[in-house]
Amino acid sequence: MTRFDSAKLIYVMGPSGAGKDSLLGFARERVGAHVMFSHRYITRAAADGENHIVLSHDEFASRLSYGLFAMHWESLGLCYGIGIELDAWLARGMPVVVNGSRQHAELALERYPDARFVHIDAAPSVLAARLARRGREDARQIEARLARRPAFELPAHAHVVKIDNSGMLADAGTQFLDLLALAGRA
């Protein structure tokens, strides 16, 4: 296992349906105040289990123009941002968890070279079932989403831990908490 004992930025990513929001919620309830969880701003209404701040496209563009995002990206017609409070927390020595994007992880690594990455995944059948329960896409769209799973690779020097969240949330959650406990001791 990659050691997270010097981690400050913990960048969580994985495909839709992998249970990232559930895993982050599980950890947030148990980790205490020694680890911060970044705010994520999205131009989409909040749904079950998601923890983000809803912005209109105009609000997002305005915040972006004022430099209020430490990181930002677009995906499937939506805008995502991580607020600049991330940098203030890191400057004060706080470990910070970010709910990020696989497609933008390399940009995060460029900006935060000491970042640690946690790739959450689940078996394809589990992903399909979770996406169907979520109800944002029809069966055809879910099938297309699962078929286009992009290859994911970070440079060899990046610190990446993979967690399979196909089973019980508590199992994956315990693995994630162990990583955060190491980060909190740094």
Rank of each mutant, 00 (worst) to 15 (best):
P113L: 04
R28I: 00
L78K: 01
I42M: 02
F117M: 04
L127R: 12
D87K: 11
E110K: 15
R185H: 09
C79W: 11
T174I: 05
F26Q: 04
L78E: 00
V54W: 00
H72R: 08
D164A: 12
Y11V: 02
A123R: 12
N51M: 01
V118I: 14
A129D: 13
H159I: 10
L23S: 10
A18G: 13
W89V: 04
R130C: 06
V98D: 06
I53H: 03
S38Y: 02
D138P: 10
R133C: 04
G32D: 10
V12Y: 03
Q103D: 14
D138K: 02
G135H: 07
E143S: 11
Q175W: 01
L179N: 07
R149T: 12
S56T: 15
S166T: 14
G184M: 06
S75W: 01
T2V: 14
R3S: 15
M1G: 15
A105W: 08
R92V: 08
A181Y: 02
S101Y: 05
G25M: 03
A18F: 04
Q175H: 05
L109S: 00
Q175R: 14
D58P: 09
N51G: 02
E85F: 02
Y80K: 10
L169M: 10
A105R: 13
L154D: 10
L24M: 09
F117S: 05
L127H: 02
E110M: 08
Y80N: 01
S6K: 14
K162Q: 13
N51T: 13
A47F: 03
E143P: 02
S125L: 11
S101T: 02
S62C: 00
R30E: 03
S101K: 06
F60W: 10
L64D: 09
E50H: 04
E85Q: 11
Y41S: 00
S125N: 09
R130Y: 07
R133I: 01
S22Y: 04
H52K: 06
V160R: 03
K20Y: 15
M13D: 05
A47P: 00
E110L: 06
A128H: 12
A132E: 11
F60Q: 07
A183H: 12
I10D: 05
E85S: 09
A172K: 11
